[in-house]
């Protein structure tokens, strides 16, 4: 970095031009191939744990260093430019470190507040429509909570326990947001001042003032009668078909019940996508 630059070029425009032997680029090119192969092999041979991390990051840093130093000519730039470009990303590293702690903490609160992490697990299980064995892997909490996980595990896999799922999912949002106080006033908007009185409750963290009352209702109601079912759309499904399957042949016209119940999800009864999870309301006449 000291044997720098100002080799006077033939004319002004090329004063700062970089001239290095082609061979150098070919060597670096070769090294990049080797290093990429190495990091690929780390995965191929299934190296795990700290060694995997160490190797992957090592190869990553070396590759990045080669590209920046040789291909981007940073090694021949003057220190002023090098430091101006290479120091600021330090802010990013700090940000990454903070977010690593933060996400650990978020994970901890999720596991701690819903017992097992089963709440979101259930949501996801529903989404993936693979009950049963999948849940076993889904609930992978820290040791101290493992027992409880096993206790809840089997139930969780059953879509019928929707009430519990929803209840927990609610606290999921609350814990994850942790924002009850802050969001509440804003979300209170639609309902006006009256509802904002409930600012501190976790329910509000769901971010929907209109829903505040309803959320409570839902929890109590659902506790006694978990009647709603969930259905994951398969390719080729239409709301009409589902209605016929759920409410009986000839009741396809009741697809609007399903549509009404899933209005937040669907903009148009004709537009559904495979993989969507719909709430199937009970057949009400």
């Amino acid at each position: 970095m000291t044997q720098s630059t100002s080799v006077p070029g033939k004319n002004v425009g090329h004063q700062e031009g970089q001239q290095h032997p082609i061979k150098l680029y070919l060597i670096v090119w070769g090294w990049l191939f080797v290093l990429s192969t190495c990091s690929y092999l780390v995965d191929y041979f299934g190296i795990e744990g700290f060694l995997r991390w160490f190797l992957i990051l090592l190869f990553m840093i070396v590759k990045a260093g080669l590209i920046v130093a040789i291909f981007m000519h940073m090694a021949w730039e003057r220190l002023a430019l090098m430091y101006a470009i290479l120091v600021p990303p330090g802010a990013v590293l700090l940000f990454v470190a903070i977010m690593a702690f933060e996400s650990d903490y978020t994970h901890f609160t999720r596991v701690a507040f819903f017992g097992t992490g089963s709440a979101s697990a259930q949501t996801e299980t529903l989404a993936s429509a693979k009950p049963g064995p999948e849940t076993g892997t889904a609930t992978a909490p820290p040791d101290e909570l493992k027992k409880e996980a096993e206790k809840h595990g089997p139930e969780v896999s059953k879509p019928e326990v929707a009430s519990e799922g929803r209840n927990a999912a609610l606290s999921d949002s609350a814990a994850a947001t942790g924002e009850a106080g802050k969001t509440a006033p804003v979300s209170g908007s639609a309902a006006g001042a009256a509802t904002t009185g409930e600012a501190g409750t976790t329910a509000l963290a769901s971010g929907n003032a209109v829903g505040v009352a309803a959320v409570h209702n839902d929890i109590t109601a659902a506790a006694k009668a978990p009647e709603a079912k969930f259905y994951t759309l398969k390719p080729g499904d239409t709301l009409w078909k589902i209605a016929e399957a759920e409410y009986g042949l000839g009741h396809g016209g009741k697809y609007h019940l399903i549509f009404e119940a899933n209005k937040s999800l669907l903009s148009d009864p004709g537009k559904v996508h495979p993989g969507q999870v719909l709430r199937i309301p009970p057949n009400s006449g």
Binding site: E102, T106, R110, S120, A138
Partner: peptide, 8 residues
């Protein structure tokens, strides 16, 4: 962040 904090 989303990867580390998800329980799934």
């Amino acid at each position: 962040t989303v990867r580390m904090s998800t329980t799934v």
